[in-house]
Design a protein around this nucleic acid. Sequence first.
RNA 1: GGCCCCAUCGUCUAUCGGUCAGGACGCGACCCUUUCAAGGUCGAGAGACGGGUUCGAUUCCCGUUGGGGCUACCA
Length: 472
Amino acid sequence: MPSPRVRFAPSPTGYLHVGGARTALFNWLYAKRTGGTFVLRIEDTDRERSTEEHTRVILEGLEWLGIGWDEGPYFQGAYGDRHRRDAERLLAEGKAYRCFCTREELDAQRARAEAQKVGFRYDGRCRHRLPGDIGAQLALGRPFTLRLVMPDEELAWDDAVHGRISFQGRDLDDFVILRSDGTPIYNHAVVSDDIEMEITHVIRGDDHISNTPKQIALYRALEKPEPVFAHVPMILGNDGKKLSKRHGATAVGDYQDQGIFPAAMRNFLALLGWSPGDDREIMAEAEMIAAFSLEGIQSKPAVFDTTKLEWMNGQYLSATAASELLAPVERQLERQGVAVAGDVLLPLIDAVKARSRTITQLAEQVAVRLRGPSSLDPKAEALKAKMGDGFAANLQRAVDALDPLPESEWRPEPLLETLKSAAESAGVKLGDAMQPIRVALTGSTVSEPVNELLAVVGRSASLDRMKAAARR
RNA sequence: GGCCCCAUCGUCUAUCGGUCAGGACGCGACCCUUUCAAGGUCGAGAGACGGGUUCGAUUCCCGUUGGGGCUACCA
């Protein structure tokens, strides 16, 4: 059996969204698993909506995710001649026909059908035009499209994820394969290209299921063997509707900006609608490839859960050394206008790493330690309100205790000892003594241990922030 | 309206006729910590409904209901 050839074929009419990315990932995984070839094809036959910008973003998104292609990118628009030849061959063989119906006529028919609440299907009125009539239309220079003669037969296939799916040709209409300007329609271009590129496995979104019988009809008309089809289910928003812009971040680039690791994104996407069949969650690339199969793909749609994505990213984050985080954190800080040397950053990164889920969160925490909190988060606000006067009093006591500590003693151990004895002699619980300091220094109730926090922020900045917070 | 797909905890999923229906996220509790997390342990939480088939159905079949997709000279 020849090695499989799969393809990812996005249309550059929008950004690379997570659904497309997952489809690409499944194709890629399958190719890697089987030693096959992964072809990238840009379907830009819709000239109106396709842009180079979108193409660039899609390519960059795939590269960022580490999904490399073996062939391409091919641009569908470059193969117009072949698409036309294939369509004309069908015309010559009587498997397609010229349709002189105008768009206006068709629109009117469709509107009428809709008003009557019946499904619109092209009635095939041009299918049986007499040769003389056709000649006359041609002589008049009337524009025409090419329509496929839809056979009245079963159009079925064994879907690799759904099992057998069957349509009846009589339920489908004679769809257009070539526009009046000679350019191909999607379904025709896809089949022509998949044949030419010797694609053996078509792995794509569920929304293409209804295109598949049309494409099968085309394969039969062209007398070429059909590939294996595998339709992966949709990705839904948290309201159970198809994932779209109004659900927030749907573009792969959004997650890149949020500081999600490509490896975490890949891992998460792979587990959305696919499972290795056991309990594994965090999986290395090689592990996923080894476990991947089309049969392991779920047949029901999956809801995109960003909370779990962030958890997974946190897993990758805590497994990454601070030194490797240096460069991305520097980039994030630069964007916020904070420039600091790496040797200052490293201990800060180490301090907050375990408490962050994304690079962005991590960079924010680092920035707060460098320049102080700009505001208090809701929990810190609530704590301050709850403690009332005790908040400032505890802070003032801490300042009094810590102020005499010289720079050389401003280290975690002496700091802890000092704070402990101060709290003890004042008869205050350690927690009550510590939390106000945490809030004063970071604006948050969550941080590394307070003594370590004080050490990492430094003597003068710590005392300044505490004094300022005690005054307010 | 027509055609097609889908249905296990709130979410992602395991189960390929016999399981106390397992795991993960999230949630709650506890442990650890004379401070926050992280981590660890435990807990709550699911087979849409109705018929079959079978000694036995979450699993196989049919129907109902509920979601979703497509129905262009878009992709």
